[in-house]
Design a protein around this nucleic acid. Structure first.
Lengths: 332, 332
DNA sequence: ATGAAAGCGCTAACAA
DNA sequence: TTGTTAGCGCTTTCAT
């Protein structure tokens, strides 16, 4: 717990009886060092447990890299953000880049604070799932590249990694239309975040393409799902816009004993979705791939790649587990 | 994407027409600056978008703090590690400390690599869920404090945050004994990680206290749970040592149509455990509290607290949801 | 092939 | 109250 201060290159140089610069050369793998000197340096490094000081080195170095990036996600404890974060950290670590991460809780103020904290630590770049519509504080970050993930920020000229939200929702709804459903409800705040708006678009166009009317979309809570079921003309199928709503819908359906009667497809996979009875059919995203893609894009930009902002679309995948395959009641 | 280099204190000083040291004083909130000068400095800071360089400052400062800590967990994408990580990051962020994190995947070699990466970046301290029995590379870290979380590392003199694994398992088994069960199986590798061994201890002592024989403990896979159910004298109740095994057990019970006949209590809560039918009774840990405790302990040590290693025991909580309350078959 | 000197952005110690 | 100088650990540049 206590413990001495770390040895510096100077200490190594004294121990190895060479100049400080020679130690620097050896540590950085420059080839122009005589083998015997290099051996002495290595021995001194070992015996003193010397570790180079990345901060001091970056301060003087021409490229100015901390080999550290910042990641801002909605909730690091949630399954989606956690999978994203892990993939980013793994991909970065392969290139000896480490990750600072924080949860924004969809709070733009928190996003600013974390951006400032990471910037002060000279992160080489940022991966952000934007909260709210206004990312002007990111626009003022002109010295490091930013990559957006999960959500776009219109007007911000940054590489963006997105799931195919609209197409995924379209698939889900078409899946239920193909089973004969005509009263399909959308559960989600279609005025909210961009991802949900995109999913609502997919829902609407699927219905429009089939010439079927939309059931008036509804809000967030379990009570709302219940209200939907208890209404005058309940739907025969439900599409939920994200996994929390899916779970709410499952609860509501159970409560009314309708979980085997009304079809349900949810956006986002969630743990144990296959353990429920019936298994929950979902439009799964691929957060691991999104994270890898984001990390690669950012590292490319950090390495100096120029050119216009890129868009990476990560496909979603409809996983049939039972709940989405429930047919509508026979005509009546 | 492109973009100029960041302004330095020198630039601010020139713009505000004061000395560099005056800027330093204002930026660091030292009170001994005349209001008019301070105002000029603030204006210059704003107009240049100046942000202090924490790395350069730490290099010169006496306390030598990067206000950054490192966190090594098994799997940042898993629910337990993710909750732990989020709690640590939140607690640290309150004190303006940020978190570097990585997944070890239980691989001691990976643990070493990450330790080296964080050390080179001069993390002020480390929070580690140790992989494997040998943490000698942590012992050689004499210059920064280390806190262990989730798992102990005997012989390493570090603060340790642990769930009450033994007591929690004891509770779970006693819960089923009280319902009349006598053939209670333990599912888990009792030779494996320390946490599982502790849970096995709790299982055994609960049985011993009740004068009941243990069912021979079994290994990891779903196949094993099935083998248990298909054996000559299947148990009337199962205790699983962690959430992956719990899910395996649920699958196996479903497959044999026994999920309403055989009692099940699992260690670790997991998402949607309450949505299953029956709901799964679990011994829940409190990873958020473990994370907060770990962060606080580490920050105290970083702030210079001395004294012998501390142990923090975070209580577990038996959550009754149905599966654990299934009675044994009436005597026969 | 090796080393000496300067300086990255900042703060400590001291001076004015 | 303000400014000057030195130097944190390292890499650069330039000399040898």
């Amino acid at each position: 717990m206590a413990g001495g201060s770390r040895p510096t290159m100077k200490d190594v140089a004294r121990t190895a009886r060479v100049s400080l610069k020679t130690v620097s050369r050896v540590v950085n793998g420059e080839p122009t060092v005589a083998p015997d000197l290099a051996a002495r340096v290595h021995a001194a490094v070992e015996s003193l447990h010397y570790r180079p000081h990345l901060g001091a080195s970056m301060l003087r170095r021409n490229d100015r890299r901390t080999r550290t990036i910042g990641v801002l996600l909605a909730d690091l404890a949630g399954p989606f953000s956690a999978a994203l974060h892990r993939a980013i950290a793994d991909e970065a670590s392969l290139r000896d880049v480490q990750v600072l991460a924080g949860s924004t809780d969809e709070d733009p103020h928190r996003e600013r604070e974390l951006t400032a904290a990471f910037t002060q630590r000279h992160a080489d770049g940022l991966i952000v799932a934007p909260s709210g519509p206004d990312q002007c504080h990111l626009r003022s970050l002109t010295d490091i590249p930013v990559v957006l993930v999960d959500r776009p920020s219109p007007g911000l000229p940054a590489d963006t990694i997105l799931a195919t939200n609209t197409a995924g929702a379209h698939d889900a709804v078409r899946h239920m239309l193909a089973r004969g459903h005509r009263r399909i409800a959308f559960l989600g705040d279609h005025d909210g975040v961009a991802t949900v708006r995109d999913r609502y678009r997919g829902y609407l166009t699927a219905l429009t393409d089939a010439g079927v009317p939309a059931v008036e979309p509804l809000g967030w809570a379990e009570a709302t799902a219940l209200a939907l079921l208890d209404g005058p003309t309940p739907p025969t199928a439900i599409f939920t816009a994200h996994h929390l709503l899916t779970i709410d819908a499952v609860r509501a359906l159970r409560l009314r004993g309708l979980h085997r009667r009304i079809a349900l497809v949810g956006f986002d996979d969630f743990p144990a979705a296959d353990l429920l009875d019936p298994g929950i059919t979902v439009v799964a995203q691929d957060p691991a791939r999104m994270g890898r893609t984001a990390a690669r894009a950012l590292l490319e930009r950090i390495d100096g790649m120029t050119g216009p902002p890129r868009e990476f679309w990560i496909p979603t995948n409809l996983i049939r587990r039972g709940s989405g395959e429930i047919p509508p009641p026979v005509a009546g």
